[in-house]
């Protein structure tokens, strides 16, 4: 279980996280919604230890990752995978080397076994036979899927998705969502997705949280969020231009 407790983070004078509290249960798919620039990605980066909070705790299976030393943090990261908003593929490596990066660095599998594993992951994300393409030869959707293949290559228990469907066409968005669901079903992974794509969020979520003003303002099942009387939730879910989020 992941517990985020009273998390604070500021950049200069701008406070981005102002006491975030959140629980993510094993095997569940939590979607964090929120307007652009509200700090959703910052929250995700704290959960995987890319950023250190100014205050607060993040407990993963009871261990406070904000106080972990590098070696232990790396051990924990091997149980996690992250799909970046921009896919963040390594430009200088081909698709196979990108996906196999973690495997090559942390296991002693043979080249043949690694190739087999990479091909299996590429098959899962619907990109068979693209092993030797360079990232520059891939479209936006393909890059995201390769990024996802890299995130799941080490068969993580927790997957973090940072706006996985932003900039994708509806068909590709559905493909990514289905992949998200199948990973949850087949591998039983815990997933946290941040997005502002409502359709995608409600397709994959077990629970939905709304992040606004540096805090989680509402959390609940899809139905609870849809029927919430919180005006912030109502405005965001309905996508209304006028409302408490846009009031000066």
């Amino acid at each position: 279980m992941i517990i985020v407790s009273n998390l604070h983070k500021s950049f200069g004078s701008k406070a981005v996280l102002k006491g975030v509290n959140l629980k993510i249960y094993d095997g569940e798919s939590l979607v964090i919604l929120g307007p652009s620039g509200c700090g959703k990605s910052v929250l995700l980066k704290h959960i995987i230890g890319l950023m250190k909070p100014d205050k607060g705790q993040i407990l993963i299976d009871g261990e406070d990752i904000t106080k972990l030393e590098q070696t232990r943090m790396d051990e924990l990261r091997m149980r996690m995978g992250m799909l970046f908003q921009s896919a963040a593929l390594f430009d200088s490596l081909n698709v196979e080397d990108n996906i196999a990066f973690g495997i090559n660095r942390h296991t002693s599998l043979s080249k043949r076994a690694v190739h087999h594993l990479v091909s299996e992951k590429l098959e899962m994300v619907g990109l068979p036979g693209t092993n030797y393409l360079m990232p520059s030869e891939l479209s936006g959707g393909m890059r995201k899927r390769v990024g996802l293949a890299r995130a799941i290559a080490m068969e993580p228990e927790i997957i973090l998705y940072d706006e996985p469907t932003t900039g994708l066409d509806p068909i590709m968005t559905s493909a990514i969502d289905e992949l998200h669901l199948s990973l949850k079903e087949k591998l039983g992974v815990t997933s946290i997705m941040v997005t502002h794509d409502m359709k995608s969020a409600f397709r994959v979520a077990d629970r939905v949280a709304l992040h606004y003003g540096g805090q989680i303002v509402e959390i609940g099942s899809k139905e609870e969020i849809m029927n919430s009387q919180n005006p912030l939730v109502q405005q965001f879910v309905r996508g209304e231009a006028q409302g408490p989020m846009t009031q000066l």
């Binding site: 996690m80 995978g81 973690g102």
Partner: peptide
């Protein structure tokens, strides 16, 4: 700026 350095960290690589 393309988050590749963050990606290295998430892959337990300093």
């Amino acid at each position: 700026i393309t988050e590749q350095i963050d990606a290295l960290d998430t892959l337990a690589t300093n």
